[in-house]
Design a protein around this nucleic acid. Sequence first.
DNA 1: CTAAATGCAAAACGTTTGCATATAG
DNA 2: CTATATGCAAACGTTTTGCATTTAG
Lengths: 145, 145
Amino acid sequence: MEAIKKQLHSQSYKLTPQREATVRVLLEHEEDHLSAEDVYLLVKDKAPEIGLATVYRTLELLSELKVVDKINFGDGVSRYDLRKEGAEHFHHHLVCVECGSVTEIEEDLLGDVEKIIESRWNFHVKDHRLTFHGICDKCQNENNK
Amino acid sequence: MEAIKKQLHSQSYKLTPQREATVRVLLEHEEDHLSAEDVYLLVKDKAPEIGLATVYRTLELLSELKVVDKINFGDGVSRYDLRKEGAEHFHHHLVCVECGSVTEIEEDLLGDVEKIIESRWNFHVKDHRLTFHGICDKCQNENNK
DNA sequence: CTAAATGCAAAACGTTTGCATATAG
DNA sequence: CTATATGCAAACGTTTTGCATTTAG
């Protein structure tokens, strides 16, 4: 939180109550993958006068600052995911095609793959997006009942 | 093309001129990552009376039949990518953050990673999406000029 | 005090849908 | 002949924008 405040100030962005409330909501829901609408509704509890447009603008700002990652699981909605402090790379996701649950994987499993990309394609990797679609542990068990 | 026709018939879908024209456009632009609008404009050259809605409906149908993959690079648009014949998995992409070029990687580099996912998370992988963001060969060279 | 940020409503955007008409099988 | 597919326009949900007003620094 403090780190984020400093980051805003250092680039001469203002720390408004709306922005603070939005960041707080994101921190309180680190595990989730909130849409802009979700964030809006949650922030409204803390700061009822906030407008949806401000939430969009704040989320875009945080996205530029690499505080959050904007992701898209293929339903028509963008979701926003807080980056773990100091995380070099975006984490991976497991999306269950049955129940829709999303599991996060913090570990970076792509080290070797990135080396191949760098050397064989001479592509300088800055970041990645990796999502697996399949059936989660829970749904596998339920199917076998 | 023939394979796709058979696949349509086998599930008692009709092979209309519009669908044929759409598939032809996709075949002619295998390398590209066309949006629905792109496809619409290209199909219109061949079959001017076609409607945008039909293109959407056809692309969705082809998506269900696993003839194309629907992808999203984070701009607000869905793109449609022809699956290579017999391809088990979706291919990977290298997106250049400077020039926007998209390179396809046919090889499946995720074999080992998927094994880890299956065993450690007990998640049964059906498909994956992997995109690297970075700087392509060409742009690296131009930056060093 | 002033540039930056906000709230609101309207507009824009990609996509989907209802319905009357046309057509592949 | 009939179920399926089409074209059109209207509807949809998400995101962006213009503008007058407020506010953090």
